[in-house]
Design a protein around this nucleic acid. Structure first.
Length: 492
RNA sequence: GGCCCGUUGGUCAAGAGGUUAAGACGGGGGCCUCUCACGCCCCAAACGUGGGUUCGAUUCCCGCACGGGUCACCA
């Protein structure tokens, strides 16, 4: 039994007078999209208020421990720009910030609750049917009425026990949520939930309340799955005589109308999205808007702009379905908004996956308006490396009024014009081909369509005939054009 | 099943006791153009349902339906 000084010392460490929020993930080895969004909202609330954002690792479930999982959390949050003011790695006034390192803290608080009649020791070994019936936790537990002396004596004698919360049987408990408003639950429906397990470790439910209080958390942000246990938490706060925090329960992100997004069902994690070629700023921007809407019509926000715009008033009560199509839209938009230099730097590795030794700046400039995800890039460039096997049907295009015969004629005139280009750069290639079209008195399309087909072997290409010609180099361009001529002539 | 929560176009969503019920994505059409893309213009598309309250409800209240959450010595 700890003395009052021990409690006072802990209380004294709690910072007052500032907004303090925490993100408290379990170290599972990856970051869910939903967790990421919760982290984002939690961070935004702290930043908006000029308060503190803390990171706490909830690792009390030893069975689920994953190697280096905390590192994944640190790296992911840091990379996303969600920096924390206090946490396991940076310390802070109310540490430690890893739950297993706090385990000695919880039992004394549970004992204090027992003293106040808000909890009791339960020595029962439950059978499965009793467990299923729920009788134990609904106030039917015989240990609930054990005298304090008897319970004390049995505990001292070494009999194993759990500590359960004593929920009043009458009345109801109301709490306020910033999004949902007041929510009331009849006490009779609340369980005498376990606070301290047989092994002496706290349950999540208990550890959370203790930690949130001792860390001075003013705004508890979490998923709606905790909505129905919040009355019990409030009863705990009341039992201790502590102020309750503001609650912000966020509705889940769904895969479809009935399933939450989950890695188990094959939905991507945040890291998966990154490796699929999505930009972090696009992901963050998109998920911020899943469940929250800003006051105006704007939907593109940087992190600092989100801090500025964020307001709990825009939080939605209903679940939101994750739409990869709209995420892709955000991604392509973010790609387009990059400066040409930034984009080239991002795209270079993907470009080099497909081709080497070509003008990456030119390729990047062609790609920037045309790629939705960076991972699209290699596939768009395959034709540069090797001319695909194509059907001469591609030379037929009604809009530019070309058919095989016209194409053959155009290619035959283009060949010497390309041959004559010197020096070989984009401007000269352009002038040579456009000049030729003028000289022949044909529309650009009529000349350039067959040239592009011969050069690429594809109906759709990033960039037009001029750019592709330039990229391929004179020798390869001439070779491909000659090949086109041969094939068309062979069929004629 | 009990309790709690939710329900505006396919999706994200704004909105208010009286509106032509925003906007975005996606879809359709068009323009631009050497293909595609970008850009620009236009179009289709919604208040789950039954009762109230009210001069008037999609908006407020109740029921129902549907969906979700929770009812662990998991978090």
């Amino acid at each position: 039994m700890k003395d009052q000084a021990w409690f006072d010392e802990l209380e004294a460490r709690i910072p007052k007078g500032e907004v303090r929020t925490r993100f408290a993930p379990s170290p599972t080895g990856y970051m869910h999209i939903g967790n990421m969004r919760t982290a984002l909202y939690t961070w935004l609330i702290a930043r908006k208020a000029g308060g503190k954002f803390l990171l706490r690792i909830e690792d009390t479930d030893q069975g689920r421990l994953v190697e280096d999982a905390a590192e994944v959390i640190y790296r992911t949050l840091r990379d996303a720009g969600l920096h924390w003011d206090e946490g396991p790695d940076v310390g802070g006034p109310v540490g430690p910030y890893i739950q297993t390192e706090r385990k000695a803290l919880y039992l004394p608080f549970a004992e204090r609750l027992i003293q106040r009649g808000c909890a009791y020791r339960c020595f029962c070994e439950k059978t499965e049917s009793e467990e299923d019936s729920g009788d134990f936790s609904r106030g039917e537990d015989p240990c609930r009425s054990l005298s304090a002396e008897e319970a004390e004596a049995r505990a001292r004698a070494g009999e194993p026990y759990v500590v359960r919360q004593r929920i009043p049987r009458e009345g109801s408990t109301t709490f306020h949520d910033e999004i949902f408003g007041d929510i009331t639950a009849p006490n009779a429906d609340l369980d005498d939930q376990v606070l301290i397990k047989r092994d002496g470790l706290p349950t999540y439910n208990f550890a959370n309340v203790i930690d949130d209080h001792l860390m001075g958390i003013t705004h508890v942000v979490r998923g709606t799955e905790y909505l129905s246990s919040t009355p019990k938490y409030n009863l705990l706060y009341q039992g201790f005589g502590w102020d309750t925090p503001a609650y912000i329960h966020c509705s889940p992100i769904m895969r479809d109308a009935q399933h939450k997004l989950s890695k188990r069902h094959g939905d991507p994690t945040y890291d998966d999205l990154l490796s699929q070629g999505y930009l972090k700023e696009a992901i963050l921007n998109y998920i911020a808007l899943l469940g929250w809407s800003p006051a105006g019509e704007r939907e593109f926000f940087t992190l600092p702009e989100l801090v500025e715009a964020f307001d709990l008033k825009g939080m939605s009560k209903s679940p939101a379905i994750f739409d990869p199509v709209k995420l892709t839209y955000f991604n392509s938009e973010y790609i387009r908004r990059k400066s040409p230099e930034e984009f080239e730097a991002l795209a270079r590795p993907y470009i080099e996956e497909a081709v080497t030794g070509m003008d990456t700046a030119l390729i990047a400039s062609l790609l920037q308006q045309r790629c939705e995800k960076l991972s699209d890039i290699p596939g768009q460039l395959g034709f540069l490396k090797a001319l695909p096997d194509y059907d001469t049907e591609l030379f037929v295009n009604k809009k530019s009024k070309t058919d095989r015969a016209v194409s053959l004629e155009m290619l035959r005139s283009a060949l010497p014009a390309v041959e004559a280009i010197d020096p070989w750069d984009q401007d000269h290639v352009h002038d040579a081909l456009i000049g030729l079209a003028e000289k022949l008195e044909v529309k650009n399309a009529k000349l350039l369509w067959p040239v592009r087909i011969a050069l690429s072997g594809q109906a759709v290409t990033p960039g037009g005939a001029v750019e592709i010609c330039c990229l391929l180099g004179k020798e390869e361009a001439l070779r491909r054009m000659q090949l086109g001529i041969d094939r068309l002539a062979g069929e004629a």
